[in-house]
Nucleic acid binder design. Structure first.
Lengths: 185, 185
DNA sequence: ATAAACTTTCAGTAATTTCTGAAAGTTCAG
DNA sequence: CTGAACTTTCAGAAATTACTGAAAGTTTAT
């Protein structure tokens, strides 16, 4: 398990970014190591490579599995477990995106739905509910939209992204194309 | 500054979600309070309402201003400063999105660019660089795409989101519409 | 210039999160 | 069944992050 300067820099950076991406430093480092290392890598090698305890490594791996970013890889003849990325870069990015949506948006949507069921007790509450409705609707749109995009699959999504400003032009004439799909604003 | 049960629940929740959204509990609470309160609100009222120190309030407000989520509002005849949201819900969501892109993606892009300048020292590094290139390209696409979407402006973006699965169908026939814009895969 | 009414800063403290390592748990070969 | 080779758990320690409140700073009125 050689940690070349290049890999070390990348691993350190992913560690620092880790917390911003929804997990902690160690988890970020472990992920980077597993992704950048082409061969399957064992928990012990990770602990050694990153200078962290075996226990911490175990927790980190568990966390990464709960995010579905890595998976186990059984090497015949070896007793210990090895780990590899759960898919290509695109898949991993998608998983992070999806998992974060679950943690960052879904709980709020759920609370907002509940809060909006009550009848406002006074003007102050009525006003607050209006705002909460706006937030709820926005989050709902974003959620639906992002699911839509995921359903498109990698290729089409890429086409769409590469389309760039063409999207705007396309929207302007879309009604000629899809007459049934009127804008619901 | 009345904290009705509805507002209290929402403020508490935004506090708990705060850390997941890129700021801390207090900052989340302050934001919720300012957004849900229709009238401009003073720092002292916020500190009292949330039971936090005046100092902490000041720091929180500063942070929210750096995110461009709130702005000051001068009330004639009053010496103290009042605060209001920096725009409508859509604007605020956009700001959060943009700010997070700056904090979560840009630094990584920058590091990756640097790391990819070096010539790989061996096979291990060559392989790692390939992966890093993939990551870089993905982040670049996502960044460009999200900027593109922001340029569309609220209305068109909404149209696009409401379009739902129509996007897929539209893509299939887009070449007839925009012959010059070939897919660059 | 002074003072009142406010805001900001920051050193120290408190709260929270992360990490360690020893102990307990699991799996498997013999 | 036993023990070797591994993994997981979790209580306590360490590291990090957030908060307080007193002091310093700013602004405005007189």
């Amino acid at each position: 398990m050689k940690m070349t300067p290049l890999i070390t820099s990348a691993v350190m950076h992913f560690g620092e970014m880790g917390s911003r991406w929804g997990f902690n430093r160690t988890v970020g480092q472990i992920l980077a190591l597993i992704v950048l290392h082409d061969k399957p890598i064992s928990a012990q090698e990770i602990a050694d490579g990153l200078n962290i305890s075996r226990g911490n490594t175990s927790m980190g791996l568990k966390e990464l599995q709960s995010w579905r970013l890595i998976k186990q890889h059984l090497v015949p003849g070896e007793r210990k477990e090895f780990f590899i990325p759960a898919g290509d870069i695109w898949t991993l990015a998608n998983r992070v995106f999806e998992e974060r949506r679950k943690r960052e948006i879904d709980p709020t949507m759920s609370l907002l739905r509940d809060l909006l069921l009550d009848t406002p007790a006074n003007d102050t509450e009525a006003n607050a509910q209006e705002k909460l409705t706006e937030i709820h609707d926005l989050l709902e749109s974003v959620t639906a939209w992002s699911q839509e995009l995921q359903n498109l699959g990698p290729e089409k999504l890429n086409t769409l992204m590469k389309l760039g400003s063409g999207v705007g032009r396309m929207l302007e004439i879309k009604d000629k194309l899809l007459p049934g799909k009127s804008t619901v604003n």
